[in-house]
C-alpha cells in the first residue's frame, strides 16, 4: 500500500507539471459533462412540456434513447463506432474532433446526463403550481418573461435534490472514461495494478478518492439546498 502511494500518489492526486493527474481529469470531465448537459437540458425540458407533438416528441425520443441504453454502449458508439464511419473519416473537422478520446468521452457523457437532466427538469416544470402561473398571467407577463421570472427559478429550486443525485451518479459514470484511454483516477489505479499486481490496494485507493469527492459533492449540495430551499425549512 505504502509503496503504491509513494509511486503513484502524485499520479492519483497532484499535478507534476506536464501530465494532468487522475483527480483533476475526473473533476474536469465531471464539470464539462454537467455544464454542457445542463445547458442542453434546460431548453429541452421546456420543449418536453410543450403541447405541440412536433416539439415534445423528438425530445421524448432523445431522452428515451439515452436513458434506455447503457452509457458504456453510448461511449463505445461515439468513441469507436462513429470514428469507423466512412464520411467521418473523410470530413476534416469531424475527423479531427472524433480522433481525440476526450472529445468523444465528454460528448457521450454530456448527452447522457443531458437526457437524464431533461427529464428531471421537465418533471419539476410540470409540477409548478398552477396558482403561480395564473398569477403571472394575470400580471400580464409574456410567455418568455413568465418562464424567466417564475417557472424556471422555482422549477430549478425544486429539482435541486434530484439533480444533486444525478451529479453524483455522473461522477460515478466518469469512471467509464478509462475504457476510452482518458487518464482519469481509475486509469491511474489500473496502471498501478498492472505494475504491482496488487488489485486490492490500487483500486481501493481509487475508491477512497472517489468516496471523498462524493462526500464533498454531497456536502456542497446540502449547503446549496439550505441556501436555495430555505423557504422549505421547518
Amino acid at each position: 500500500m505504502i509503496q503504491i502511494i509513494q509511486q503513484y500518489g502524485i499520479a492519483y492526486l497532484a499535478w507534476d507539471g506536464y501530465r494532468i493527474s487522475g483527480l483533476a481529469m475526473t473533476l474536469w470531465l465531471l464539470v464539462l459533462a454537467c455544464c454542457i448537459g445542463f445547458c442542453l437540458a434546460l431548453p429541452l425540458a421546456i420543449a418536453r412540456n410543450s403541447k405541440n407533438p412536433l416539439v415534445w416528441f423528438p425530445v421524448w425520443v432523445f431522452t428515451f434513447l439515452f436513458r434506455g441504453t447503457p452509457l458504456y454502449v453510448q461511449l463505445l458508439l461515439i468513441y469507436s463506432g462513429i470514428y469507423g464511419l466512412e464520411f467521418v473519416h473523410n470530413t476534416a473537422p469531424l475527423n479531427e474532433f472524433f480522433r481525440q478520446a476526450i472529445n468523444c468521452t465528454v460528448l457521450s457523457f454530456a448527452l447522457n446526463t443531458g437526457a437524464y437532466t431533461t427529464e428531471i427538469f421537465a418533471g419539476a416544470i410540470k409540477e409548478t403550481s398552477h396558482g403561480e402561473v395564473d398569477a403571472a398571467r394575470a400580471m400580464g407577463m409574456s410567455m418568455r418573461t413568465m418562464y424567466r421570472r417564475i417557472i424556471i427559478p422555482s422549477a430549478l429550486r425544486r429539482a435541486l435534490p434530484v439533480y444533486s443525485n444525478e451529479v453524483i451518479l455522473m461522477l460515478h459514470a466518469t469512471t467509464l472514461a478509462f475504457t476510452a484511454t482518458v487518464p482519469d483516477i481509475l486509469k491511474v489505479a489500473n496502471d498501478a495494478y498492472s505494475a504491482t499486481y496488487d488489485p486490492f490496494d490500487s483500486f481501493s485507493l481509487a475508491a477512497v478518492i472517489y468516496l471523498c469527492v462524493s462526500f464533498a459533492l454531497i456536502f456542497g449540495f446540502r449547503r446549496a439546498e439550505r441556501h436555495f430551499l430555505a423557504f422549505l425549512q421547518p
Binding site: H172, T174, A189, F203, S204, L211, F215
Partner: peptide, 21 residues
C-alpha cells in the same frame, strides 16, 4: 454509505480482481 459513494466500475474491478486472489 461506502457502496453508494464509490463508483460501481471501481468496485467491480476491486472485487473482481481481489475475490480471486
Amino acid at each position: 454509505t461506502i457502496i453508494r459513494g464509490v463508483p460501481d466500475l471501481v468496485l467491480m474491478l476491486l472485487i473482481f480482481y481481489s475475490l480471486q486472489i
